[in-house]
């Protein structure tokens, strides 16, 4: 689906040794990131990890102490499009309370040097896409929280930016709106370079082509969600419930027999086995247990999630 009247040139974003210090504290520490053309990059990190500072530098709102941000190999200010190539949807709902949806959309369009007519056409189109066309003439303060959130995203897109930075786009949305939003963002990718910052791992997993995890100002890991889930942590989990505790010697022999097991723990009658590919290993695993004379009453499987990866990398400790 072609969402816009005109498409700008696709943009590739690179950061080179991007660094920002606030006094003694290093908020962003030599970050090297690449966001490819048409890619959605999930930018994940705990509170205070340096996400917002990095994003502000990418947007040109904050001057790096070291390093640079390049758009198609050039610094932002040297590009003819300048800041117009960026569309930003902040975490908070940022809109003018006493302007109607259409008024503020066209206003922002005009701020980006669009003619009033083009601005109006785009505004109506985007409001329609966001399910807000019927609310066009309603003041923003009278919209529900979910509608304001959708308006927040629409405002970032009026000027048809090739780069989109979405900060927690699904925060505060009901399930229906989340589905609509996800579809919308997916449709935007391909023609647009998108950076998605979120704490919602499910959102990042579903939407991102690649994920970068940042903590204490440093990038800890970058990769596709699947790769991260396979390569990081203790793998997928198989939970077997025998109704009674298993003898220790059976558990020990399981560890010896199956080298692919990354972690094995017990809790009362339950046995938790973490391994990278449980579907492949499960038949042999069950055969071994049955042969030892035990039969699980219940078997559950849970895939390693991005949240597991995130916790594994950033730890469970709360950020200071």
């Amino acid at each position: 689906m072609r969402l816009f009247l005109s498409m700008s040139e696709p943009i590739r974003i690179q950061t080179r040794n991007l660094t920002k210090r606030f006094g003694e504290q290093v908020a962003v520490d030599h970050i090297n990131l690449e966001v490819n053309l048409g890619e959605i990059l999930g930018f994940l990190g705990p509170n205070g990890a340096g996400k917002t500072t990095a994003i502000r530098m990418i947007c040109g709102l904050l001057k790096p102490d070291e390093g640079e941000v390049l758009f198609n190999g050039q610094p932002l200010l040297e590009l003819s499009q300048g800041k117009a190539l960026l569309g930003v949807c902040p975490q908070d709902n940022v809109h003018w309370d006493r302007l109607t949806c259409l008024e503020q959309m066209t206003f922002i369009g005009e701020m980006y040097d669009l003619s009033r007519r083009v601005s109006l056409v785009r505004s109506k189109f985007l409001l329609d896409q966001m399910g807000l066309l019927s609310q066009s003439h309603k003041q923003a303060r009278r919209l529900s929280g979910g509608m304001q959130r959708r308006l927040n995203i629409a405002l970032a897109l009026v000027h048809d930016p090739p780069v989109l930075i979405l900060d927690e786009p699904e925060a505060g949305l009901d399930p229906q709106s989340r589905v609509l939003m996800r579809e919308f963002i997916r449709n935007l990718s391909g023609s647009r370079t998108i950076i998605l910052t979120t704490h919602n791992m499910d959102e990042a997993d579903r939407l991102s082509h690649r994920v970068a995890i940042i903590d204490e100002g440093r990038i800890l890991m970058t990769g596709t969600p699947d790769n991260l889930k396979h390569s990081t942590g203790t793998g997928n989990q198989v939970e077997l419930d025998f109704g009674h505790p298993l003898p220790a010697q059976v558990i020990d022999s399981l560890k010896t027999e199956f080298r692919s097991i990354r972690q094995l723990t017990t809790h009362n009658s339950q046995l938790f086995i973490h391994l990278p590919d449980p579907m492949k290993a499960l038949p042999d695993l069950l055969a071994f247990i049955n042969h030892a004379g035990f039969h699980p009453a219940e078997i559950k499987m849970r895939e390693n999630t991005l949240e597991d990866v995130f916790i594994q990398l950033t730890g469970k400790k709360l950020q200071p």
């Binding site: 709102l61 117009a84 930003v88 902040p90 908070d92 003018w96 701020m111 405002l155």
Partner: peptide
């Protein structure tokens, strides 16, 4: 205060 300044700043105003 309403942070709408962010949108204006991004628009090169």
């Amino acid at each position: 205060e309403k942070k709408t300044m962010l949108r204006l700043k991004l628009s090169k105003l």
